[in-house]
Amino acid sequence: MDETGKELVLALYDYQEKSPREVTMKKGDILTLLNSTNKDSWKVEVKITVNGKTYERQGFVPAAYVKKL
């Protein structure tokens, strides 16, 4: 869990989004878990840094590609 009590997951593999509802992640990324009720895909939040500014983006990733921490 992070400092706000949200559950975290670790990306086990790289994943490139295939639709606007998904998010891209790299192996080793730590993501905030938002919903894990679907056995196939979990909703997560990723933090992306562009030019020194951090943005948050929500979307789905394959459940088999992440592990709860």
Rank of each mutant, 00 (worst) to 15 (best):
M1W: 13
M1Q: 12
D2G: 14
E3C: 15
E3G: 14
E3Q: 14
E3V: 14
T4G: 13
T4Q: 13
G5W: 12
K6G: 10
K6S: 10
E7Y: 11
L8W: 14
L8H: 10
L8N: 04
L8Y: 15
L8K: 11
V9K: 00
A11F: 03
L12M: 08
Y13F: 12
Y13L: 10
Y13K: 12
Y13E: 10
Y15V: 00
Q16D: 12
Q16W: 11
Q16H: 11
E17Y: 04
E17A: 15
E17L: 06
E17R: 14
S19W: 06
S19N: 14
P20I: 08
R21S: 14
E22F: 05
E22P: 06
V23T: 03
V23G: 02
V23Y: 02
M25S: 02
M25R: 01
M25W: 02
M25K: 02
K26Q: 08
K26E: 03
K26H: 10
K27M: 06
K27Q: 09
K27N: 03
G28Y: 03
G28Q: 00
G28M: 04
D29G: 03
D29R: 02
L31Y: 08
L31Q: 01
L31C: 04
L31F: 06
T32L: 14
T32R: 14
L33V: 06
L33I: 03
L33W: 02
L34T: 02
N35P: 03
N35R: 05
N35C: 12
T37A: 11
T37Q: 11
T37L: 09
N38S: 10
N38K: 06
N38Q: 09
N38M: 09
K39D: 09
K39T: 11
S41H: 15
W42R: 00
W42D: 00
W42H: 01
K43P: 00
K43C: 15
K43M: 15
K43Q: 11
K43G: 04
V44N: 00
V44C: 02
E45D: 03
E45A: 15
E45V: 14
V46W: 06
V46Y: 08
V46D: 00
V46L: 12
K47D: 02
K47R: 13
I48E: 07
I48V: 13
I48A: 05
V50A: 09
V50S: 08
V50F: 08
N51R: 07
G52K: 03
G52V: 02
G52R: 02
K53R: 12
K53T: 12
K53L: 13
K53S: 10
T54G: 05
T54I: 12
T54M: 10
T54D: 08
T54P: 07
T54R: 07
T54A: 07
Y55K: 07
Y55C: 10
E56D: 11
E56L: 15
E56R: 15
R57V: 10
R57P: 01
Q58L: 05
Q58G: 03
Q58Y: 06
Q58K: 07
G59W: 06
G59V: 04
F60V: 05
F60S: 03
F60W: 15
F60C: 15
F60M: 07
F60Y: 14
P62G: 03
P62F: 10
A63C: 07
A63M: 02
A64Q: 11
A64D: 13
Y65H: 06
Y65L: 15
Y65C: 15
Y65S: 12
V66M: 06
V66Q: 02
V66C: 10
V66H: 01
K67S: 09
K67M: 13
K67F: 07
K67I: 14
K67G: 06
K68W: 07
K68R: 12
K68S: 08
L69G: 01
L69E: 02
